[in-house]
Every structure is written in structure tokens, then in C-alpha cells.
Simulated assay, not measured.
Amino acid sequence: MADPFDAALDLLRRLPPSSTQQNLSNLISLRPDLEEDLLSSVDVALTSKRCKKTGRDFLCCDYNRDGTSYRSPWSNEFEPPIEPEDAADLIPGGRVRRMEEAVNAGVDVYRELYYEGGVSSAYLWALDEGFAGVVLFKKTAAGVGKGGWDSIHVLEVTEAAGKRSAHYKLTSTVILDLGLSSAAVDSLELAGNLTRQTQSDLQLGLRDSEVEQSHVVNIGRMVEDMETRMRNLLQEVYFGKAKDVVGDLRSIQPLSEVGREREAHKDVINKMGR
């Protein structure tokens, strides 16, 4: 008999990506015992909340959640509040909190430059040999053409004792949801997600006071490079492939001419290879 958790993941992969959140909720209602495993394993579109203390929006995910409460990166407090003894283990302090504040300031500027709106959040927490974190972006559009872009960048940083370098591991997921509704086309929907991973050893500052800033800069560069790469991949995979399929179904040119052009292109490539 199949493992219930594996069966649930297999089912979610076969259902429409645009309905992942609703399908996940339905599965949890059927098997409450799988809630924690499913929430930590399935990427869904991010939700946002308003920080009551600062009045700024922040993004909610499994990494800043404790039950039904979520920690704001702006106030460093859970909303709604949790028990003080629990908060002591879940709220970062010291260098981790300083880096978290700096990363949030950096990604907020990046969000304005590349998203021109939306919401961003970053969360860090300490590990035995370094720290880990997540950087989040969300942008939605409404109207005749609706759209949603959710970026989830999970990172793990390993610091080697006595060395001025650190090992960074970044796993990034982009969830894209596009839709069009009009009298001309009725309705059209395109949704899915893309996950990529990268690792790198990067240098840190020479002085202890520069190490924290070096981590912030390295994280920012890795996230920016990954987002650019994945944005180009999404354009190629989603729209390039859709254009090819439509072209094969109904071409502007006679398909016989298209076929001859492709054969001529292949012939040129083969001759160049020889």
C-alpha cells in the first residue's frame, strides 16, 4: 500500500497548479496528521499580513509560522502573540537579527527596482555551523489580464571556523499564475512552478565587523542572479514552447514552407558541425 504522504504529493502534482492551495487544504482536512509534512513540502502562493506595530505588509510562509501565528520581519514579533517561552526559541537575536534587518532593507530596494510594487520579506535563523533563511517576493496584477508571481528563495550558509569564506546553498522556486478573461478569448489560464538550486563558496570581509555585511551582499547577489536566470527560463519554457505548439497547429506560413526552412536550418547546422 502506498505511503499516504507520497500519495498526497503525487496527487498534487497531477492537479491544476492554480488550485494547489485549495487542493492542499482539502487534503489536510482529509488527513490532518499530514498537515505539518505537507505544509513544509508543498510550495503554494504566498499570503501577506499587515504588521500591527509598524503598519507594513509582510509575507507568510512555513518558515515564519508557529501554529496560526506569523512573525513580522519588521517588528520581530509574532501576530497574534505566542507564549513567551516559545517566542524565545523562534525569534532571532544578535548577529542573525542584525543580518535579517539588513537583508530586508536590501530586498525592499530590489523589489522596488524590479517589481515596482508587491511585497518582500526575509527571515533568518541560527544553525550550529552558520545560519539559514528565506527571501520572499510576491507581486499580483488584476484586471482583464490577471497575474501572480511568487518567489521563494531558501538558503543555507555554512561558516568554516578560522576561514574568511562561507558555503552558500540556495534553492529557489518561482510560482507563476497568468490569466486572461475577455469577450475576444473568453478565458485563458497558464500556471505552474519552476525550482532550481545552486551552491557557491564566497569570500567574507577581513575584519569581524565586515563579516555580517559580506553575508548580506553575497545573499543579495545570489538571489538576484537566480531570479534573473529563472525569469529567462520561464519565458523560454512557458511562452517559447506555447508559441512553438501554436505554430505547429496553425502556422502563418504554409506548413510545407516551414518544414523546408527547418530542414535547411538543420542542414546548415550539420555542415557547421563537420
Rank of each mutant, 00 (worst) to 15 (best):
R250N: 14
L34G: 04
G67L: 03
V246D: 06
C61D: 05
Q235K: 15
A160I: 11
L180C: 12
T173C: 06
A102H: 00
H265L: 15
G162C: 01
R221Y: 08
D37V: 08
D62C: 03
Y123L: 00
G273W: 10
A141W: 15
S165Y: 07
S120P: 04
P254Y: 08
G118E: 06
D62Q: 08
L113H: 12
S251D: 13
K169V: 13
R65H: 05
L155V: 09
R250D: 14
I219F: 02
D10C: 04
V223F: 02
T195R: 14
N232I: 13
L255W: 12
H153V: 03
L12I: 05
N232E: 15
Q21N: 09
S151T: 10
E257I: 10
I152R: 01
V185K: 06
A142N: 09
R111N: 04
N23P: 05
P92D: 07
L27R: 00
P84S: 05
R97A: 09
L190N: 07
L249P: 06
L59W: 02
S251I: 10
D37Q: 15
K139W: 07
M230E: 05
K241P: 05
L39T: 06
A87H: 02
L24T: 02
A88H: 08
S29P: 01
S18F: 08
L194C: 08
D10G: 13
A160E: 15
K266T: 11
R231H: 12
D3L: 05
A87Y: 03
R250E: 15
P16L: 07
G55H: 03
S18W: 01
F137T: 00
L233E: 14
G67F: 04
K139L: 13
R207W: 07
H153D: 14
M272C: 11
V144D: 09
A132F: 03
R71Q: 06
A122Q: 04
P254R: 06
V96K: 02
L202N: 03
T54Q: 07
E159M: 12
N104A: 03
K52Q: 15
E85Y: 10
N64R: 00
T198V: 13
F239C: 06
